[in-house]
Simulated assay, not measured.
Amino acid sequence: MEELLQSLLDRVEGAFAAAIGTLEGLLVEGVRRRRVDLEAAVAEHAALLRQARAAYAASLGTPGVEELLVAGYPVVGYARMVRPLSGPRPWEDLFLLLLMGPEANLGQARLASARGMEGLAEVVGWPT
């Protein structure tokens, strides 16, 4: 899993940290290029994902939030729910978090994280 996260950092221009976390706010695995509190970042983004999920369920009738982008300065946070490509979804509480600078390429972040799901599926034993 660490290699997958490091690969994401290498592919996404402007990214300086990547992590897998749970919706309960626990850090599962993380890598970083500069000093950053990944445990706190995962906990905060988990809370935001839970709140977004609740808001979408209440107002739009869908509890499915797949991606969340928080654009701040000097940090941009991109969270994406971890989903298997097919079959059952036993890990629905996991998400990928990329922390980036404001100059980061958000298109690369979305594309690389989507492609990274294939590698993650192999790591956690999902059928591909």
Rank of each mutant, 00 (worst) to 15 (best):
L4Y: 11
L5C: 04
S7P: 04
L8M: 10
L8D: 01
L8S: 04
D10R: 14
D10Y: 08
R11N: 12
V12T: 06
T22K: 08
E24W: 10
G25N: 10
V31P: 00
R32L: 11
R33K: 14
R35C: 03
D37R: 13
E39S: 12
E39F: 07
A40S: 14
A41Q: 13
E44M: 12
H45D: 14
H45S: 12
A47P: 01
L49P: 00
Q51R: 15
A52R: 13
A52T: 07
R53I: 00
A54G: 06
A57D: 13
A57E: 15
S59I: 03
G61W: 05
P63C: 01
E66T: 10
E66N: 13
E67V: 02
L68R: 03
A71Q: 15
A71V: 12
Y73L: 07
Y73W: 12
P74H: 11
V82Y: 14
R83C: 01
R83V: 03
R89T: 07
E92M: 05
L98W: 11
L99K: 11
L99T: 07
P102C: 05
L106C: 06
G107C: 05
A112K: 03
A112V: 08
S113F: 08
S113E: 00
R115S: 06
R115Q: 14
M117G: 06
L120I: 11
V123M: 08
W126K: 07
P127E: 15
T128E: 08
